[in-house]
């Protein structure tokens, strides 16, 4: 029995800081934005965290398909910025959307790919007929240490997907995952900012895992890049997804609708799932979407997705990704630092 996406929703905070403003403060070269292909990034409000933005994204998903929240049997929330070390994000999200309490929930962590791992877990329960609907969330309000390269990209955003068997907006035809023990990026318990292996980690981390998962899925599905109308690759910056798409034989046109990182930054667990949402915002029934996430540590989940007729009914009933590019408010570095509570230099 086919299973897949019944509805989806996103949320991106309204504040932005421009890369050139960060470069100005740290005396960096002004072409930093060009080099990263990230021109501005989202910044959460004082009272926003991974929980509040997950709630807003989930409320949009529930609204988009007029879902009765009592049907949800599982909530899996992927994030690397869960506000509590112990006390699940999913419990708060569930209460905020009015779920029935007959429900399983857990928070997932796998750097930037915990959200797609949550999609897989929901898909398993739904396909086995153990639950009616599963809620998979990718949400992050990530931080880079002041002056670190990550500060140009670490942003905030969330995406929520309702996974089920009926009234599909898009069918998930198959997935393939590739996982190894690769220390390319990490954060120890209690530390405010992550550490990374520097520039060289792109090759053994992002590129090796995304290409392995992509090639694995294409082989499993017996498909080629040309079989897909769109492709979405994890977007830690604006360079990597463009380069990996080229290496794998996907065109610039295929990735364009889902390439949102130049305007919002790297939303970590939200990143590839917001890219997918931006693609669902424009895709037509029958079209196919290739999706590959990446999480440092490291792993990649690749999905083959076919858009269903149901997309037309629900698409316009909640805000689209590009709606969040409008009415943004720009911050200077001083106000931005206040927003982020950046006192530990």
């Amino acid at each position: 029995m086919p299973a897949g996406i019944v509805s989806y929703g996103v949320y991106i905070p309204k504040y932005r800081i421009r890369a050139e403003e960060i470069a100005r403060v740290w005396g960096e070269r002004e072409d930093m934005a060009q080099n990263l292909n990230v021109f501005e990034k989202s910044v959460p409000d004082f009272d926003e965290d991974a929980v509040t933005i997950a709630v807003e994204a989930t409320r949009n998903a529930v609204k988009r398909a007029s879902i009765d929240s009592a049907r949800i049997g599982a909530i899996y929330t992927g994030s690397e910025s869960h506000p509590y070390a112990v006390k699940p994000t999913g419990t708060i999200v569930g209460e905020a959307i009015g779920v029935d309490h007959e429900l399983t929930a857990a928070d997932f962590e796998f750097a930037c790919k915990a959200g797609t791992a949550a999609v897989q877990a929901c898909l398993g329960l739904v396909t086995a007929n153990l639950i009616d609907l599963g809620l998979a969330i990718g949400t992050d309000t990530s931080q880079g240490a002041p002056g670190d390269a990550l500060e140009y990209t670490a942003a905030a955003g969330a995406a929520a997907y309702l996974i089920g068997r009926e009234n599909l907006a898009a069918e998930i035809e198959g997935f393939y995952s590739f996982t190894t023990d690769t220390p390319d990026f990490w954060r120890r318990e209690g530390m405010p900012y992550p550490e990374h292996g520097g520039r060289f980690t792109g090759e053994p981390g992002y590129f090796k895992h995304v290409t392995s998962a992509t090639r694995g899925l294409l082989k499993k599905m017996k498909t080629i890049p040309e079989d897909y109308d769109y492709a979405v690759f994890h977007q830690p910056n604006g360079k990597f997804p463009v380069r990996v798409a080229g290496q794998l034989g996907f065109s610039r046109d295929q990735i364009e609708p889902g390439l949102v990182v130049p305007w919002i930054g790297n939303t970590y667990s939200g990143s590839s799932l917001i890219g997918l949402a931006a693609t669902l915002d424009v895709a037509r029934p029958g079209e196919r979407i290739f999706l590959a996430s990446f999480g440092s540590g490291a792993g990649s989940d690749a999905f083959s997705i076919r858009v269903c007729d149901g997309i037309e009914d629900i698409r316009d009933r909640a805000p689209k990704v590009r709606d969040y590019f409008e009415n943004v408010q720009y911050l200077d570095y001083a106000v931005y630092a206040k927003h982020k509570g950046k006192l530990r230099l």
């Binding site: 009272d47 509040t52 708060i92 009415n327």
Partner: peptide, 26 residues
């Protein structure tokens, strides 16, 4: 949906409802 308050660095985080202008909001 926003954070209403926190009990210092160790305590509970209080979540709840705040408001935004309808005009100019998504």
């Amino acid at each position: 949906f926003r954070i209403l308050g926190k009990e210092g660095d160790r305590g509970i985080i209080y979540y709840g409802t705040k408001f935004v202008p309808v005009e100019g909001s998504i």
